[in-house]
Write a protein that binds this DNA or RNA. Sequence first.
DNA 1: CGAATACTTGATCCGCATCAAGTGCCGTGG
DNA 2: CCACGGCACTTGATGCGGATCAAGTATTCG
Lengths: 214, 214
Amino acid sequence: MFEYDKHKFKPSEEMIKSAISKKLLKGRLLYEKGMKPSGLYYIKSGVIGLINYTASGSESLLRIFSEGDFVGHRSFIAEENYHANSSVLSDSEILFFPCESVEHLLKIYPALFLFLTKQIAKDLRSSEDRLNDLSGKKVFLRIAESLLYLKTKEPTYNWTRREIGEFCGAKTETVTRALTQLVHEGVIRKEGRDIIIPSINHFIAFLKNEELKD
Amino acid sequence: MFEYDKHKFKPSEEMIKSAISKKLLKGRLLYEKGMKPSGLYYIKSGVIGLINYTASGSESLLRIFSEGDFVGHRSFIAEENYHANSSVLSDSEILFFPCESVEHLLKIYPALFLFLTKQIAKDLRSSEDRLNDLSGKKVFLRIAESLLYLKTKEPTYNWTRREIGEFCGAKTETVTRALTQLVHEGVIRKEGRDIIIPSINHFIAFLKNEELKD
DNA sequence: CGAATACTTGATCCGCATCAAGTGCCGTGG
DNA sequence: CCACGGCACTTGATGCGGATCAAGTATTCG
């Protein structure tokens, strides 16, 4: 089961002075696949998703960013163009730090560079763990684990069935069915469209037990 | 379709002096999942695979390393324990560079650090591209693309059907069937157990065309 | 209130895994 | 050098998980 690191990097006052502030509404793109990075984005508030299109035309949700996260650092550091769209999932306030090169970033903000490097290394682990899960775990378990991850990362955001599915490679209908089962199992509750996990520990215990089956 | 970067980092004579040399036979493990990194590995010759076990007990091949590649750098830089086994696929000669901390590495070998950082950032892209393919592409295309990748990265190594399958989330039988079809399509040839791609360009053209279907 | 979108539930289909029963291929030891 | 044992591979038959299709209902937003 993948987890995420709550450790964040707080930009200095001086850094923030050099930043450009933007407000973006839900549904907008922060950047588009194929574009060349010219700096780093930082989320003051809101939720951003890194989204790619699959061969069959549906979307997949590769990574989630929220308050206190940097965005666009992978492409910037790899010196590649963006490999996916950065889509605004809820109204966001963003800082943009223009930067000309990786070497320049390392020189002026070595601590930030080190932080981002470690972040990418951890993200690679997560991505490879998900790769592993995708070929080894049944969809029900993937959905349950993704729900836990998404709800832990951003408890106040109302994740849709579609987004949960896009995160773990499942269709909306399949997510619905899995959620119905999770309600029957007594580990989640629905309130309108929102999904409530009354006890995270209870949910985790259920997952651990579920993993042993099959 | 994912590609790999041929750009390599050559350790200096001075670096090599501080290294420990090892010879490992096929089937051995360079390191095991869960162990704590204490330095970096470098491949002088041979092929190494990063392998994880899926929930259903089968294996998945996460990354491939060969001559001139570093191994174990992700965990070292993330300051995490290894998240998968490093398995020797063909007899290898390895250099081990002991190193106490990420900061120390950055201080004494800044160019290597920068190189590894970029490498990890590119690997994250590849991994996320594969994640995307796994939920969007049919198994036939995944197998064909994986074959191209593996054969391009290590043309002399005889990739087994099992390994190709473990790389793209397919079973051995499915790989066999896909290969049979690729022979019928006239883009590969079998010689004993080995797979020959007579013309890489022809193969790529076939793939491009195949991607447009469906 | 009406329209658009998110969700739900059931029926059906199909891709690929699984199971089974072989046939090579290759290294090892006599 | 050949025989033998063990994997790697092949091919066909069968089954099932989850996608797809379809036809609703609920929710949210203008």
